[in-house]
């Protein structure tokens, strides 16, 4: 089995698709970094001073002022208090939150790319995995060996999981290394707010707490990895079912993009919850960003993603081991 997995990984490496993905990252991350730096600069200009300490103190005082207002609901007060703590930490440790360092960029990057960018990268690898063997005819050499078909497919799936992990981790590492040139490489210990919960449209802050950014990053990338694995698994099924790599990729692109669109266009239509590609934004549960779709919870998201993965895997394996190779 190890030999089979090695075969698949060797092919993946030699086919250069992985390198293309790394190339895409190396080109795009500096662009995103530049965009982010521009945004921060513009924000600093609006405030009218380049001294971030002044800005921060001002923000703290603004928020303290808001706290004194009696009209504020209690849960918001707790939230503001946490925000103040976070900002005071910045001041105390001499961390400029507007030039926050590469780890903060990594965090923002994964939160933004989890529903579209990362899945697309994964699709590049996954959609090609089986269909390329079908369309090039090498499947015939692969399946006339003394190895059961399900083992051949399993080795491909395992190597796909490895490749997905590699892509997600490379995204993390490259976004760190490349954005650090602009933002600096510090900021692993920065406290990040997490633990927001939503109940009946209200934001619950009782579980909100601060955690060091490195831990948050590990978890955020872990969650995006889960989302990517679902994408990889579904693409894998498509790759088994569709002979042409191009159409497989097209199908997956359409699915992922429509998932994103549905999320924006009709968040009140409950049925879209059960479409895997509307559930990719797992990191929102960590960051506390309001969930767009009504009634979405973490167990539901995980359940939907898991169910899609299992069904896709079963379909892929059954189809692959039963099917006649006519090509």
């Amino acid at each position: 089995m190890i030999g089979l997995v090695y075969n698949e990984m060797l092919k993946m490496v030699r086919k250069k698709r992985l390198w293309v993905i790394l190339g895409i990252l190396v080109i795009l991350i500096p662009i995103f970094t530049y965009a982010q730096a521009q945004t921060l600069e513009r924000a600093a200009k609006q405030i009218g001073t380049s001294d971030w300490k002044v800005v921060l103190k001002q923000q703290i005082i603004d928020q303290q002022n808001r706290l004194t207002s009696s009209r504020l609901p209690e849960e918001w007060k707790a939230f503001i208090k946490l925000n103040i703590q976070q900002q005071e930490y910045y001041l105390k440790n001499n961390i400029d939150p507007t030039a926050p360092g590469a780890p903060t960029f990594m965090r923002k990057f994964v939160e933004e790319s989890v529903s579209l960018f990362l899945p697309l990268l994964v699709v590049i690898i996954a959609a090609d995995l089986v269909s390329s063997e079908l369309s090039s005819g090498t499947i015939k050499l692969l399946l006339t060996r003394p190895v059961r078909r399900w083992k051949v497919l399993l080795s491909k799936y395992i190597s796909l999981l490895f490749a997905t992990s590699f892509i997600v981790l490379s995204t993390a590492i490259l976004s760190y290394l490349l954005s650090g040139v602009v933002f600096g490489y510090g900021g692993w210990d920065l406290p990040v707010l997490s633990g927001f919960q939503e109940k009946n449209g209200a934001l619950l802050t009782e579980f909100v707490h601060l955690m060091p950014q490195w831990k948050y990053l590990l978890m955020a990338y872990g969650l995006s990895w889960l989302a990517c694995i679902t994408v990889a698994t579904v693409s894998f099924m498509v790759s088994v079912l569709v002979r042409s790599t191009a159409s497989g990729m097209g199908i997956m692109l359409a699915a992922i993009i429509s998932g994103n669109l549905l999320m924006q266009l009709s968040p009140t239509w409950g049925a879209i919850k059960y479409f895997a590609f509307t559930q990719l934004r797992l990191t929102d549960y960590l960051s506390g960003r309001p969930i767009l779709i009504e009634g979405m919870t973490l167990p539901l998201s995980i359940g939907v993603l898991g169910a899609w993965s299992v069904v896709a895997l079963i379909t892929a394996f059954v189809s692959f081991s039963r099917r006649d190779v006519l090509a």
Partner: peptide
Amino acid sequence: ISQVGCIVENPELYPYLTGRENLEHFARM
């Protein structure tokens, strides 16, 4: 199938691997 060696239609090997790598690839199976 262990008793069989075959070429079905054209010998479609992996063009992005060397000849030896192709052979080693199938040998591992």
